[in-house]
Design a protein around this nucleic acid. Structure first.
Length: 597
RNA sequence: GGGGGUGUAGCUCAGUUUGGUUAGAGCGCUUGCCUGUCACGCAAGAGGUCGCGGGUUCGAGUCCCGUCACUCCCGCCA
């Protein structure tokens, strides 16, 4: 017999009545009636009510014991009388009458309780994460994370992917995020880098002839945190396939996600695969972002023409249009019952977001005719109103918001406003998962600051053009076999078909100013590997943390991470980062410079 | 690196707009009472550098300046 327990705290039921049992767990909650004491004992599995009366010699000790102390109790299972049963609890039909007990570990006064659903400051939760993780919601989230990973792993193995580990200490490479560097002791003055992703390794696995690979891979990027992005490290389902085209990868991944979200999505509706494919340009045009929330029914419309014409006399917009600006309309249905304050508040919100405001027109029927209302309606001719209604596919109950700026800023802000307005109007159905692929990313974009062409995504992606015609085309018009998987406005994954032809890779890098020599130097392993027979290949890498976040219905990634760092990339529990001994630094040939303020 | 929000008891928060007696409530904690609770109940009590520093004022939790911490966002994230 196990020394600590005969049953866990979720196991006992009516059939156990009369048995002598031993339970171990945390003292969850005490209810002290003076001469009668109820103790809820909790473990990973559940809660069992235990009871003791004051004629027992142990009564006084238990009465004083602090919550969250770990105890082992011996007792007998008794049936509760009908009126004292607790239907909420799986073990609520019985209780354990305590005969004797042992305190296995005593708890001090708690910085935060485990019992209850009260919110607690995050720095305290992080500092005492081991207590926070005992709390029901966190415990469930982390359990879900484990189940999600197990599910993914078994599905991937079923699909004949092989799971491999790749190095954690590797080489720094240009492009991408800032690296975490690890100084080398044996090679003084040189550094390893933690991998931002196993990108080059997974390509080499294909080149090594393994056909399909996956890994639940840690990725390290020295970037600042966000609610949906941990600073420092995160996990990806890294996968790669040989002799695969874009559609082959989609076909492997779509059912995986469909099944995963069906199984763990708490009954939320999922759009059936194949998931819609939306081009990058179309996504920006319609949703103002490359990670659209398709639960939001609003679609942006370009109405620059209307504002350009003499039918509209709005001078500020015309000036911006003359400087290559555009006007994006955000048509919103059924706003007729909204008070003036609704529109004013949105305007104030826009200003607080750094925009100059959010212009709008509402419509109503007057003498059988639809007319525009609101501050800027006077600038519109009857004809302009007609055109607007037609183009935006709306009627007298609706309204249109306008954003006017240069193309990229107009799209970007219209995209944010689209989501804000939908949230205000409750247009987003939180009981569905809406997946789509964003495809046809541009290979390059123009970097305004540095006045040069840059990679807009992964430099190893295959351009959607023959190598022979590559130089004939404006690089900014070249698309890549590069795609994202998006769900409910979150980017879940990036992926690409890779460029497996060294000569072509040199050409591509050449466009952003890398000489052949620089590519050979910075990506020597990769170039070498591609030079001895590389299969065409591609893959992707969905973010595990974000998947679990969506499934757990959380908006903060720390809620699904066991031991996360705070926004300033500090581990408050382990005290990382920390200073190290002078001796350690000396071995590494490293001197720190004290920052002078 | 920049912008917004928050900071009052161990925790959640009120009080700050309009400066004025001894800074409050709930939960938790301590003590006492209580034999059927499951957010047990009842009573009493302890607990405060109002984030920190400076300033204005007869007087600052409240006004001003600075600063720190946390958080959200921008930048960054091939």
């Amino acid at each position: 017999m196990n020394k600590y327990r005969t049953h866990n705290c979720n196991e006992l039921n009516e059939k156990s009545v009369g048995k002598n049992v031993r339970l171990s767990g945390w003292l969850h909650r005490k209810r002290d009636h003076g001469n009668l004491l109820f103790l809820d004992i909790r473990d990973h599995f559940g809660i069992t009510q235990c009871v003791i009366e004051n004629d027992e010699k142990n009564f006084k000790v238990l009465e004083k014991l602090k919550p969250e102390s770990v105890i082992m109790i011996n007792g007998s299972v008794v049936k509760r009388s009908a009126e004292t049963q607790n239907k909420e609890l799986k073990t609520g039909l019985i209780e354990v009458r305590i005969k004797n007990f042992e305190i296995l570990s005593e708890a001090k006064d708690l910085p935060m309780p485990v019992f209850g659903e009260q919110e607690y400051p995050e720095d305290i939760r992080l500092k005492f994460r081991f207590i926070d993780l005992r709390r029901k919601e966190m415990h469930e989230n982390i359990k879900l994370r484990s189940e999600v990973i197990s599910f993914i792993r078994s599905k991937m193995i079923e699909k004949n992917f092989l799971e491999f580990q790749t190095p954690i200490l590797t080489a720094s490479s240009p492009e991408g995020a800032r690296d975490f560097l690890v100084p080398s002791r044996t090679h003084k003055g040189k550094f390893y880098a933690l991998p931002q992703a196993p990108q080059q390794f997974k390509q080499m696995i294909m080149i090594s002839g393994f056909d399909k690979y996956f890994q639940i891979a840690p990725c390290f990027r020295d970037e600042d945190g966000r609610a949906d992005r941990s600073p420092g490290e995160h996990y990806q389902l890294d996968l790669e396939m040989s002799f695969a085209e874009q559609d082959d990868i989609f076909k492997e991944v779509e059912p995986l996600f469909y099944e995963l979200f069906s199984k763990f999505g708490k009954g939320k509706k999922i759009n059936k695969h194949p998931f819609p494919r939306i081009t990058y340009n179309e996504s920006l045009e319609k949703y103002g972002t490359d990670k659209p929330d398709l639960r939001n029914p609003i679609e942006l419309i370009n109405v620059t023409d209307i504002f350009k014409s003499d039918e509209v006399k709005l001078k500020i917009f015309k000036e911006i249009i003359n400087k290559k600006g555009i006007v994006k309309a955000i048509p919103v249905k059924a706003t007729h019952s909204k008070p003036r304050s609704f529109f004013d508040n949105l305007n104030n919100w826009a200003i607080s977001e750094g925009a100059s405001g959010l212009a709008y027109i509402t419509f109503e029927k007057n003498n059988g005719k639809i007319v525009g209302k609101g501050p800027i309606s006077k600038f519109f001719s009857e004809e302009a109103i007609k055109k607007l209604l037609k183009k935006c596919k709306i009627n007298e109950n609706d309204s249109v918001f306008f954003v006017c700026n240069n193309i990229s800023d107009a799209n970007k802000f219209a995209g944010i406003a689209r989501q804000k307005i939908a949230l205000e109007l409750n247009l987003i159905n939180n009981s569905e998962f809406n997946f789509c692929w964003i495809v046809d990313y541009p290979m390059f974009h123009y970097n305004d600051k540095e006045k040069k062409i840059d990679f807009s995504h992964n430099p190893f992606s295959m351009p959607q053009i023959d190598m022979q015609n590559f130089d004939k085309k404006d690089p900014l018009d070249i698309l890549a076999y590069q795609y994202d998987l998006v769900c409910n406005g979150y980017e879940l994954s990036s992926g690409a078909i890779r460029n497996h032809i060294t000569e072509y890779l040199f050409k591509v890098f050449g466009k952003v100013g890398y000489s052949k020599e620089m590519v050979e130097k910075n990506f020597s392993g990769m170039i070498k590997a591609l030079s001895y027979g590389a299969p065409p290949h591609g893959g992707m890498a969905p973010g595990i943390d974000r998947i679990v976040m969506l499934l757990a219905d959380q908006i903060n990634i720390r809620e699904v991470t066991l031991f996360p760092m705070n926004q300033n990339a500090q581990d408050l529990l382990m005290n990382a980062p920390s200073e190290v001994d002078e001796k350690q630094l000396k071995e590494l040939n490293i001197k720190t410079i004290k920052k002078i303020n």
